[in-house]
Computed example of a mutant assay.
Amino acid sequence: MADIPDDELEATRNALAPTLDATAAVLPWLAKTRAPRFDKKLNTRWIEASQRLAAAWSERHTNPDAEIRPPLFALYSIALETGDADCLAFGEALAEAADQLENGETPHLVAALSAAIESLVEAEGLEHPTFPERAQHFANRLANAARLTPATAVRSPTIDRLFVDEATEHIEQMRYALAVLPPDAHALKNEAESLRLHAEQLELWGIVRAAKEFSATLNAQLDHLDQREIQDELSDRIEALASLIAAVLDY
């Protein structure tokens, strides 16, 4: 390779100098670790309490008598300890929503609680970069949902149509993932789980149950997806899900 003349090298250095200086100025800031906002032990307790609440809420879907108040108020007590306004408002909104559940749950309230509790299960807990924004968002959403009574919280045809449109896309992706050779187990799992979560938020328990049954069958047959009879069984379950989804608009 030919040597580059010294004058050209100097010109290149001069042209790059502003960029290099700017990068050198920024690097020390990027290297700094963000200082924790909360005591490490307090955050660990928050993460553990969040996990217990999420487990109790998940159990409630299969066992209506499952108690969520103890883990919820345990989380609220930690929110009080933080002294953080956003965290405290979030904790209060969760507690008020739990009280409202006993007076009569609505799809809006259950959906708000599901989304809020799901947001809590983060490895970083209180130290998650977006925790303040999330806390504010879900505190407002829970408060709005708690104001609706079973008499006023009527199912929304618009929400149902949106659900059916999105769920139908999941079904199409599942059909495609099953049709390819070999069947795409990863895509089948992801689509079924996304569908289950969405149906759960709207309390469409028949679809939730069917999606879980599909996932259970898939997990049990992962090593046999090349067999035609297994593919047929999975296909039948997909079509059963499709029928349940289409029926949502009939209510």
Rank of each mutant, 00 (worst) to 15 (best):
A95M: 12
L53D: 01
G91Q: 07
L53G: 00
E48S: 01
W57I: 06
Q51N: 15
T44E: 15
P107G: 12
R45P: 03
F90H: 14
L72F: 04
G104A: 06
A95P: 07
E48C: 01
G91N: 09
E105G: 09
A79R: 03
E59Y: 09
G83K: 10
L75V: 08
F90N: 04
P107V: 14
S50K: 00
P107K: 10
D86G: 03
E48D: 03
A49R: 02
T106F: 12
R60W: 07
E81T: 00
L101K: 11
I78W: 01
D99V: 15
I78K: 00
S114N: 15
A98V: 03
G104Q: 07
D65P: 03
H108P: 12
E92N: 13
L88F: 12
A98M: 01
P70A: 12
L101Y: 12
I68W: 03
F73L: 01
R52N: 10
R45L: 05
L80Q: 11
A56P: 02
A97G: 14
H61L: 13
D84M: 09
W46S: 02
N63D: 15
E92Q: 15
A112I: 07
E102D: 10
G91D: 15
A56L: 03
S58M: 08
P64R: 10
W57E: 08
P107I: 11
T44R: 13
W57C: 11
T44Q: 13
V110G: 00
F90Y: 14
F90R: 06
L113G: 08
R60E: 04
P107F: 15
S77K: 08
Q100P: 05
A98D: 02
E105R: 11
D84G: 03
S114P: 09
A89D: 12
L94A: 04
W57L: 13
Y76T: 05
A115N: 05
F73N: 02
I47N: 04
R45Q: 14
T44F: 06
T82S: 05
E96D: 15
P107A: 13
A79K: 04
A112S: 11
D99I: 13
D84Q: 04
S114K: 14
T106N: 08
H61Q: 12
E102A: 12
N63H: 15
P64M: 07
E96P: 07
N103Q: 14
A74L: 01
I78S: 00
N63F: 11
W46Y: 03
R60L: 07
W57N: 07
I68R: 06
A66V: 00
T62I: 10
F73R: 06
D99Q: 08
A79G: 09
Y76S: 09
L101M: 15
E81P: 00
S114I: 12
Q51G: 15
S77W: 11
A95W: 05
D65C: 03
N103C: 06
A49W: 00
A56C: 02
N63E: 13
L88V: 05
W46V: 02
I47Q: 11
L113Q: 10
T62K: 14
T44W: 11
A97I: 06
H61Y: 10
L109F: 15
F73Q: 03
W57F: 04
L109N: 07
